[in-house]
Each structure stands twice: as C-alpha cells, then as structure tokens.
Amino acid sequence: MGVRRLICFRRRRWSRYLCLLVFATVIYFIFQGTYLRALNNNSTDKLEIDGGDSIKVKHEKSLTILGVRSDDLLHYVPDKDGMFHCIDGSAKVPMRAVNDEYCDCPLDGSDEPGTDACPHARFYCEHNSKFLPSGKVNDGICDCCDGSDEWKIGLASVKVKGFPLSDVIQHAPCVDTCSKLVDREREDQRVRQIGLRLKQQYIARAQGHLSKNSQDIYGKQGEFYQLSKECFDHADYAASYHICPFNKVEQTQNGHMFKLGSKGQWDTSRVDKLVLVMMGGDRRGCPGDGRRTEIEFSCGLSNSITKLFEEEKCVYTVHFLTPAAC
C-alpha cells in the first residue's frame, strides 16, 4: 500500500512539472512575439541611439518624411547623435527640427521639404512623380493628386475661401484623384500612338512642297505644312476669331476687325512646348509692338482649338490640338 501511494505521488509531481514547463514555454513565446512587434514599431527611436550600417536599413523601411522622394530618404537618416545634416553641409540640427516650419537650412531648404518655411525648398508629390516649389504647400490648391501637399486642411481652406473653382484647379480639402491620373496617362499614351501614325501622313503630304528655307518653318519633317494651308474659326461670348497658322490671326468684336498677328516663328526658348508666335498685329490701344498671338500646339487626333484667351493686354494664347505635334 505504501509503495503504491509513493508511485502515485511521484506521477503527480512529474505531471505538475510538465504542466509548469509547457506554461513557461507558452509565456516565453508570447513575450518574444510582443517584444519583436514593439521593436519593429519603435525602430525609428532605436536608430537614434544605435550605430552601424544596420541602422540605415531599418530606418529606410520605417522612415517617412513628408515631401521627400523615396530615393532621397538616405539624406534624412540621423547621425549617431540624432542630428540631421543640411544636404548642402551648411548646418546640422536635431532630427525633430525637420519639417517643424522653421528654416534651419536657408540655402537649400532641405530641413523643410514638407512646409513652406524655406523659400528654396521643394515638395515631392510621390504619386505624380514631380516636385513643387515650397510656396505651393498648404496654399489651398491641390497640386498632388493625393492631396499630400495640403496637409494643413483648415489653414489651406481659408486661403482659397471665395476663389472660383474650375475643372483644372481643385481646392482643399483635396480629393484623391491619383486613379484618374493613371487613366488619363493611359489615354494620353493611346492618343500619342495613334497621333504618331497620323503625323506620318502629314509628313508625306508635305513632300515636294518644301524648300530648304521652309523646312525649319514647318517643322523638322514638314509636319506643320498642312496647317499652313488651313484656317480655323473659334468664338466665345465676346468675340469671334479666324486663325490661319503661319499666315494670319483675326478677331471680330462689336463689328470691328482686329489683326492679332501674321506669319509666325517658333519660340525656341520654350523647350517644353511647341509655341508658334505670330506678331505684327494691330497697334490700336496696344503698347509696344502691337497685338501678337502665341499658338501652343499639343498632340491630338484632329486639328482643333481647345482654348483661346487674352493672357495679358494684346497678347493672345491659343491652345491647339493636332497630330503634327505628336
């Protein structure tokens, strides 16, 4: 009887030990998982006190600096003392001074990429892949498709209160239009592909009609020659216009006809746009050399005028779509 009790006691004791061991193992793994999550969440703080190359890798994964291109984030890794160095090397400040709306790097504005505190700073729109001057940050106008440049919604909305809206200009609070931007880019690509095929037809029609002197006037391959043989009419609420590219531009208003330009030459200073300047217009009521018209050509599937406006007194701007510009 005594031996039996002793065996049962030992069995119960080992069962207790086994249960305690399993319980301790579970607690250990729970603790480890919690610790690793906390370490991952606080990786930015860890970077400021540790050293070595491994810091940069961890910091790049977790760091987000408003207004900075992802390729440039390396410049925003703090040193071992937690300091940020101006990219031009002119000064260093605590990391918390980045985007604090006080300009510590006045020469390059690198400490304020996400605010308008530095006049030479630039804000990067990640989804648009473009830079904005710092003055456009929180100015109430949505320049980034995701609205990230207008992060001070309350202040930005006040700045544009009462300003008219348009199809082009969107006021804060911004609506994310990045998906529409992608669709528009795809459509633009489709138009360019078709437009390039149409452009070849324009070039073929110019063959035999161009002299050595006229090649530069009508484009490198004579693609604008066909437009020089056509005229286009446009009207708005105030006046009507008769536009013959490379020849003449006329305006009729209140029964009076005004010449807005003749002939034409390319504005070679506008490397990003095709702009034909037609000068020698009517001088009545105009300063300087009189009226002139600037025709901005863009890629399109047909010849059409999309917009015409008087940009400044006696200077007229025409937005013109044509396959010749593709």
Rank of each mutant, 00 (worst) to 15 (best):
residue 112 E to H: 09
residue 31 F to Q: 06
residue 111 D to C: 04
residue 168 V to H: 07
residue 25 T to I: 12
residue 178 C to I: 08
residue 78 P to F: 06
residue 254 N to Y: 09
residue 12 R to T: 01
residue 54 S to C: 07
residue 92 K to C: 09
residue 309 F to H: 15
residue 1 M to R: 15
residue 188 D to N: 07
residue 254 N to A: 12
residue 114 G to C: 07
residue 167 D to W: 03
residue 228 S to W: 01
residue 300 G to L: 03
residue 325 A to L: 01
residue 116 D to R: 13
residue 72 D to T: 11
residue 194 I to S: 01
residue 308 L to H: 06
residue 291 R to C: 03
residue 228 S to L: 02
residue 277 V to A: 04
residue 245 P to G: 08
residue 278 M to H: 01
residue 30 I to E: 08
residue 163 F to Y: 14
residue 159 K to I: 13
residue 258 F to I: 01
residue 301 L to W: 03
residue 229 K to M: 12
residue 172 A to R: 04
residue 60 E to G: 06
residue 183 D to Q: 12
residue 66 L to H: 13
residue 124 Y to A: 04
residue 16 R to C: 11
residue 272 D to Y: 02
residue 275 V to Q: 06
residue 324 A to C: 05
residue 178 C to D: 09
residue 98 V to K: 00
residue 24 A to G: 02
residue 253 Q to M: 11
residue 161 K to W: 10
residue 219 G to F: 04
residue 323 P to V: 00
residue 127 H to D: 14
residue 29 F to D: 06
residue 228 S to F: 00
residue 73 L to D: 04
residue 65 I to D: 04
residue 47 L to F: 09
residue 200 Q to L: 07
residue 289 D to L: 15
residue 125 C to Q: 02
residue 150 E to I: 00
residue 234 H to R: 01
residue 274 L to F: 03
residue 246 F to W: 02
residue 221 Q to T: 13
residue 179 S to M: 08
residue 205 R to A: 11
residue 13 R to V: 07
residue 58 K to G: 14
